[in-house]
Amino acid sequence: MNSFCKKRIESFKYAFQGVAALFGGTPNAVVHLILAVAAIAMGLIFSISTAEWLAVTIVIGLVLALEAVNSSIEALANHVSKDRSDAIRRVKDLAAAAVLLAASAALAVGLLIFLPKIIELFQC
């Protein structure tokens, strides 16, 4: 196997180590993962359309990816400065805001897709 292929394989190994670190050390990521699994289960139960699957998949990926970015920014900021700093606080707040905005969009997508189906289920 050539050097190029070995480096690509190693990069995937590091990425999977990052995924393990995310879900092993970030409680909010675990919450997002549980909600993602619930959304996937509801999608299967309600047989959502391809377009609906596309929306669900995109927002799940967005939330989880931004949670990983947020966690990495927090870890780096904590490493750089143990002292309270307005600049570090601002960076961490902005990273957390990105996750909040993505999670809000995911909630909106979930409500738009699943709420009408749930209401229909309980109508006589």
Rank of each mutant, 00 (worst) to 15 (best):
N2I: 12
S3A: 15
C5N: 13
R8I: 15
R8A: 15
I9T: 13
F12V: 13
F16R: 09
F16C: 09
F16T: 14
G18N: 11
V19H: 09
A20D: 14
A20I: 12
A20L: 14
L22T: 11
L22R: 04
F23Q: 05
G24V: 07
T26F: 06
N28W: 04
A29I: 07
H32P: 01
H32T: 03
I34G: 10
I34T: 12
L35I: 08
A36Y: 06
A39H: 05
G43F: 10
G43C: 10
L44H: 11
I45S: 03
I45H: 12
I45L: 13
F46S: 03
S47H: 15
S47T: 10
S47C: 11
E52S: 08
W53F: 10
L54A: 15
A55D: 10
A55T: 05
A55K: 14
T57C: 13
T57N: 12
T57W: 02
V59F: 03
V59A: 01
V59P: 00
V59Q: 04
I60V: 14
G61K: 07
G61T: 05
L62Q: 09
V63P: 01
V63K: 01
L64S: 06
L66A: 02
E67F: 01
E67M: 04
A68W: 07
A68H: 02
V69A: 12
N70K: 11
S71V: 02
S72L: 11
S72Q: 08
I73M: 03
A75W: 01
L76V: 07
A77V: 07
A77L: 04
H79E: 04
S81H: 01
S81P: 01
D83G: 00
R84A: 06
R84I: 02
S85D: 09
S85G: 02
R90V: 05
R90Y: 05
K92V: 09
K92A: 02
D93I: 04
L94A: 05
L94C: 06
A96C: 04
A97D: 08
V99N: 03
L101M: 11
A102W: 03
A102Y: 02
A103E: 09
A105P: 00
A106V: 03
L107D: 05
A108F: 14
V109A: 07
V109K: 06
V109M: 05
L112P: 01
L112F: 14
F114M: 04
F114V: 03
L115N: 04
P116M: 07
K117F: 06
I118Y: 07
E120T: 13
F122L: 10
C124Q: 10
C124F: 11
C124H: 10
